[in-house]
Design a protein around this nucleic acid. Structure first.
Lengths: 134, 134, 134, 134
DNA sequence: GTGGTCTAGACCACG
DNA sequence: GTGGTCTAGACCACC
């Protein structure tokens, strides 16, 4: 129950490379439980056809994930989620959010906000019901 | 009284383009009050000589800032901080950051993090020296 | 079916910068239907070689068009006409021109020209081959 | 009755050079009757001080006008409107408007409008009461 | 002095 | 192959 219906949002226009978009979204799925140990990832070919992208792009994304130990490949079979991925899930979750927060903090500082102001804004956002966004 | 001693940290080895580094650091100065309306920016040539970069790189940074309405140029005279730059200041800054933080919080919750965890991650990021790669 | 035979008239002696000439002529093609949504523009290198200009000059023209939202780029792939370009078409075009004409009419009246005189001048301009200097 | 209260709108930010802005606005005054034969133009120094611009800029504007025969200089006295200026006034009026119309037509064509459409837009604008402006 | 444009050619990442 | 960035240095108009 997993590789049946994964869907990604890939935008070749964005500054972030396509392979990195794939990589990041798979990490997201790993962290959120959308992909579990030994689940099979979509084949390179399937992925490329579905999203009309170059197979090499998918290969690179998978290669990077393999390098990180999050997936493993069985020749002639496919690409699968590794055990390490599950172990990393918990920490990865925080890493993902940490990165986002880091970006927001960075931008805030670039705009001249003090740490105190940043804390205040963060707290207020944490309690806000929802504001709606782009 | 302002353009006397602007100093920037430009690192050509970073993934962020030089022109973007200049652009961002000038924005920082605008937001923090280090540069005020009608202050003159360093001339393209002066900037290039000081930081040992190509004048065209500075030209590009200034052009982007002009496109954003933060500076204006007087031909044969120089480049100056626009009124709009000052206007950008106040509440707008917090609004921008609030939105970013809201997104990060949203994502964190989607990944199952509790508010307490979010606070912890936020605090740790606030104190990190710097981390991100690209 | 479109980017097969685009040809431009670039004159480096004119006061208008080369990049602006390219930009304007592509706009013309967009408005006239010579280029349609998702059509691919000539590559930077191809354009530069065909017209014996520097690739950077083409880069700048394309960058300005992208900034205006008329084209988008896929890294490693090429530059394409955006959807927005098509949307720009219809009524918007007339609105832009109407405003310009209104200004000219206003000025003419301020100078004491009668409507009849304005009509005459307009007609003569409509038939002029080209006149303006800078 | 003329050089008493001439006022100009000079914008060093615009693409059009300052000297050309002065030159054009004086031509406008000549065409509209705001300046008549033997009226004295503001002195270079006065002009420069009033508008906080470089005296050389005014010198150049006056020089161009002199080259066109529209003004003449009396050493130690000042710059005055020539007889030719009056003669040229009538034709100049149309030239000014013609140029504006030409620009609008040019832009219209760049946007893909046919001559017929341009005529229609022109006529509609001629009859409009007023629309509002920039 | 200032910025604006352009050339020639380099190196890089991406697909 | 594609575009993105950067350098080195030219020439120009403007102030």
């Amino acid at each position: 129950m997993a590789e049946t219906s994964l869907h990604f949002r890939l935008d070749p226009t964005r500054a972030e490379p396509l392979y990195a978009q794939i990589q990041m979204q798979i990490k997201y799925l790993l962290a959120s439980g959308g992909l579990r140990t030994d689940d099979e990832l979509p084949s390179v070919r399937a992925m490329a056809e579905t999203y009309l992208i170059n197979p090499n792009t998918v290969v690179r994304a998978y290669a990077e994930l393999e390098r990180e130990g999050l997936v493993y490949k069985k020749r002639g079979t496919g690409t699968f989620v590794s055990q390490a991925a599950a172990d990393m899930a918990a920490a990865e979750k925080q890493r993902i959010v940490a990165r986002r927060l880091q970006e927001a903090i960075h931008e805030g500082r670039a705009l001249g906000l003090t740490d105190t102001q940043l804390r205040q804004v963060f707290s207020s956002q944490l309690h806000e019901p929802d504001s709606g966004g782009d």
